[in-house]
Design a protein around this nucleic acid. Sequence first.
DNA 1: AATATGCGCAACCATTTGATTGCGCAAGTT
DNA 2: AACTTGCGCAATCAAATGGTTGCGCATATT
Lengths: 108, 108
Amino acid sequence: METRRDVFQAIADPTRRAIIMLLALGALTPNAIAQHFNSSRQAVSKHLRILTECEILRQEQQGREIHYQLNADKMKDIENWLEQFRQMLSKRFEQLDTVLEQLKSNKK
Amino acid sequence: METRRDVFQAIADPTRRAIIMLLALGALTPNAIAQHFNSSRQAVSKHLRILTECEILRQEQQGREIHYQLNADKMKDIENWLEQFRQMLSKRFEQLDTVLEQLKSNKK
DNA sequence: AATATGCGCAACCATTTGATTGCGCAAGTT
DNA sequence: AACTTGCGCAATCAAATGGTTGCGCATATT
């Protein structure tokens, strides 16, 4: 069984990020997506599979056509990871502010 | 010349994400970082190089020791990319709210 | 029924990646 | 001066990756 990739590995590839951006505008079929890229339709199909497996995209079969759409909820995994740094950053800023306040009051 | 990686490719690897998390707590030297991992010191050193090259980490030489620290500003590259989806999402929610409001007023 | 279209599976290939090991240089210690 | 420590360079290797091509199945059209 192939190793499933996490969401960070999924967006590491520039082509996949471009696919995500495209689908953020609206659902599309594999062929419609492939028209925006210079590589083969099959290459795009592989990327779609990777993005679907890690739940960044959802697919909906309608006859022989598949509609792929963005699952924006999954992007929150990345946001949650980044949130940790935001919190650390704001803590540091608070500490810096405290130090600056003390410096001001000491000068008075 | 080797291809430089972008920030998304840099954080795609679980080991590098763990290094980033570690350094978010405070600056460390390569050997100190390597102690938290089971792989060789040289493997960690390679990851540090990758993270430094794409500016996620900053290094500061002090004698024979190097102190690596997180450059939190660079994480904003990822946040900015995600911000595009947040805006698209909030647009859709606004549209959904409008529809719901109309449904409510039509029932009254 | 025959043909066209959508699209994934599989095999293949070149490149990239992440790890290890050995080595060597610079700085610190004895 | 000799030894120790910090740490990157280079070579090597196995695995992963991203692309292509050929093929085949299901659905849609003629």
